[in-house]
Design a protein around this nucleic acid. Structure first.
Lengths: 215, 215
DNA sequence: GTCTATATACAGATAGAC
DNA sequence: GTCTATCTGTATATAGAC
């Protein structure tokens, strides 16, 4: 690590950090190809050459910026202790929502990466996928233990249930990006999701399939 | 429209259509900024200049290609007639899934557009959003009429229910793009979704909120 | 470390022959 | 309609002064 006087504003960071912060912002906003080093240099108030002195190439800068963006990406499971299984499920859902809410820009960015199946130095994308999987495994475990403790119905399918919940959360996320104002807000949908999940997990087993669907 | 001998392979189309087909493919695969006209020209086996003769600019080409990509984007509601409300809900869900499955590439592309809040000649994006909204309104109506006919529980919230279903479907979609092999397949999730929706809509009203969640 | 000036490549777009 | 040749802008990256 480099020794640097700590500061609070982008303006008083040393040049390298200013470049990094600017690049992280621009890459997240406009993507890799659509962000030029001239733009980074201009907005960071440095010369283009200085970027190449600190980072070997545009790709190297991108990798560093990505690492910086990923810093707040982690799961805190402390809040779960002492809750009922039902409370834990609701808590994880809330955590996911809050996390996304606090990281809209970068989440949006990473989602875009995943969508285009980027060949870029991915390093970052895999970490996001891991985080997603961690959330899901977390939910699976909670549902399983809730089932074993008799809080949830005995025939609950924890794997699919967890996957469905995460899918729905992800869907609520992208539904926001569609900026479709006629639809319920994300917060409302998350609440509705929590209620229906609890209902699904605690109610008596249902009647089974049927209801003819010809094609 | 221009009079042209019809043909079956890209190779035997006239130059304009070859350009259009190539451009549609490349734009969908790599996006607007990341697709160069040189690339289009090379893969379509024409000169760059010819592209400008047929289309005024790169943006004009993009618009035309977008229109071509959007051709299969429509809803067919004929299959719904004569089904029970439950069958209709399941049918719309299946339709959505099948549609996405048959248009993965372009759906992926449009999702990417929505994500980055593209400023490009959007024309296409709005149509996609409209299609999404149509699916949702369709569901809302079905749930409402099912409720009025006593097939669904009287306190069903059609608006939120429809929005939640579409969110989940969208989430299942992007979850596939995360290429997370440890998760259930999309088909499985859609089936699970259908079952849980039916359960939710037909079961007796649940107990209400509660289940403490401190933070 | 930070700059100005420059090299090199390729983008979108035009001119004009055929 | 289709081409080759070329213009002009801007991109990444380097050289070398301070």
């Amino acid at each position: 690590m480099r020794a640097t006087a700590s500061a609070h504003a982008t303006d008083s960071l040393d040049a390298r950090d200013k470049i990094l912060a600017t690049a992280a912002r621009l890459f997240a906003q406009n993507g890799f190809e659509n962000t030029s080093l001239s733009q980074v240099a201009r907005e960071a108030n440095v010369s283009k050459a200085l970027i190449f002195w600190h980072f070997d190439s545009k790709e190297a800068l991108y990798r560093s910026a990505l690492r910086k963006t990923l810093e707040p990406y982690f799961i805190n499971m402390d809040a779960l202790e002492g809750l009922s299984a039902r409370g834990q499920v609701e808590c994880v859902i809330d955590q996911f929502y809050e996390f996304v809410d606090q990281n809209v820009y970068s989440v949006r960015f990473f989602l875009g990466l995943a969508l285009r199946g980027e060949t870029r130095p991915d390093e970052g994308l895999t970490r996001v996928v891991e985080l997603y999987r961690a959330f899901r495994n977390n939910l699976t475990d909670i549902i399983d233990s809730g089932r074993q403790r008799g809080e949830f119905r005995a025939d609950a399918d924890s794997t699919r249930e967890a996957a469905l919940i995460l899918s729905t959360l992800g869907g609520i996320l992208i539904q926001q990006f569609m900026t479709d104002d006629t639809s319920p807000s994300a917060k409302q949908l998350v609440d509705y999701l929590k209620r229906s999940v609890v209902q699904r997990l605690t109610s008596a087993p249902d009647a089974g399939p049927a209801a003819g669907r010809p094609d």
